[in-house]
């Protein structure tokens, strides 16, 4: 059994914000009186992440995942709870701790807008006190892996989003971090850039780096993550390997069915019609716990006379969407 690199116990974060309203009247009123609003962003969550893992930390907007990640990266203090990462309590031993982690924020750049990425790398070399030879070796390896050699000397503002994001990864990993937090790392990128970045993450993971990935891009999740933690309304609603995710609501398959006979009145226990292209071509969701595949095939062929078909796993996005909608806050 591999060792836990991140341990979180009963983590809670509550903060106060203020209601201002949206009208002009509300704005004027807020100059004198503001109604405080207590927000419980994270509610007693606990989890562990193993060394060498790629963990997808998912949730809808406002679920509490960014707050959790900010606590895990030492940016925020929790209200209460315990966190142990690499033997450190992030908010208490922040400086020592962050020297051993990296972070890429898809919407917050560590590059410097008017000067080339090479200068930003040099500044980070000084900040992390990376020995010159190790810096050169790491930089050369990552520049080659991400294919950004040509952009090193160009001002950041003239780079494409994909090139900039690749350089963000280099900044985050120049100092050989053991854990890297990725917050929406592929947001806005084209397919080619996304693939390059996913390949880079996989390669670094094989070399031993643990990744915590926050994203709304489920292709990132399917392509990279082995463990999934789903958070909603500040609570963890799923924490298991990705294979278990598609089986969360039972063992189901998506079936595309083309038949000789009309499917209009076709009904079987455990079979749910999703959509229909025409009378003889439709998509279904089959619950194998109710109707095993073999029995379904026999009955469907007898009733409809199957012409062609395909059987797929339930798409991860359908499962996640359903999970997001399952647990509502208790008001």
């Amino acid at each position: 059994m591999s060792e836990s690199i991140i341990t979180v116990r009963n983590l809670n974060k509550t903060y106060t914000t203020y209601e201002r309203g949206s009208s002009f009247k509300d704005s004027v009123k807020s100059l004198f009186v503001r109604k405080p609003l207590k927000v419980e962003a994270v509610k007693n969550i606990s989890f562990e992440i193993q060394k060498g893992e790629i963990c997808g930390f998912l949730g809808p907007n406002g679920a509490g995942k960014s707050t959790t990640l900010k606590i895990l990266t030492g940016i925020l203090f929790p209200t209460h709870g315990e966190v142990n990462i690499l033997g450190y309590v992030p908010w208490k031993q922040r400086r020592e701790y962050v020297a051993r982690i990296g972070a890429v924020f898809g919407q917050k750049s560590q590059l410097l807008w008017d000067i080339p990425p090479a200068d930003a790398f040099e500044l980070n070399r000084a900040i992390y006190n990376i020995p010159r030879d190790r810096f050169k070796k790491n930089l050369a390896a990552m520049v080659e892996l991400l294919d950004v050699g040509e952009v090193m000397g160009k001002p950041t503002r003239v780079l494409s989003l994909g090139e900039r994001m690749k350089c963000e990864f280099i900044i985050a990993m120049l100092h050989d971090p053991e854990i890297v937090f990725l917050d929406e790392p592929t947001i806005g990128l084209d397919v080619v850039a996304k693939e390059k970045i996913r390949g880079f993450v996989k390669e670094m993971n094989q070399k031993g780096t643990t990744f915590i990935l926050t994203t709304h891009d489920l292709d990132d999740v399917e392509s990279l993550a082995r463990q999934i933690i789903l958070i909603n309304h500040g609570e963890i609603i799923f924490n298991d390997p990705i294979e278990k995710l598609s089986r969360f609501f039972g063992c189901k398959k998506k079936i595309n069915l083309q038949t000789d006979r009309s499917q209009i009145d076709f009904q079987l226990p455990g079979l749910k019609s999703l959509d229909r292209r025409n009378d003889t071509h439709g998509n279904y969701e089959l619950d194998l716990d109710i109707l095993p595949l073999k029995a379904f095939l026999a009955q469907a062929d007898e009733i409809l006379c199957i012409k062609d078909m395909s059987i797929e796993e339930i798409p991860i996005e359908s499962v996640i969407t359903a999970l997001y909608e399952t647990k509502k806050p208790e008001d």
Partner: peptide
């Protein structure tokens, strides 16, 4: 802007990073 976070993920004091 929310980019103060980037100073806190560096292994230096936040005040020093703001200075640098």
């Amino acid at each position: 802007e929310g980019t103060f976070d980037l100073l806190l993920i560096k292994p230096r004091s936040a005040l020093f990073m703001a200075l640098v």
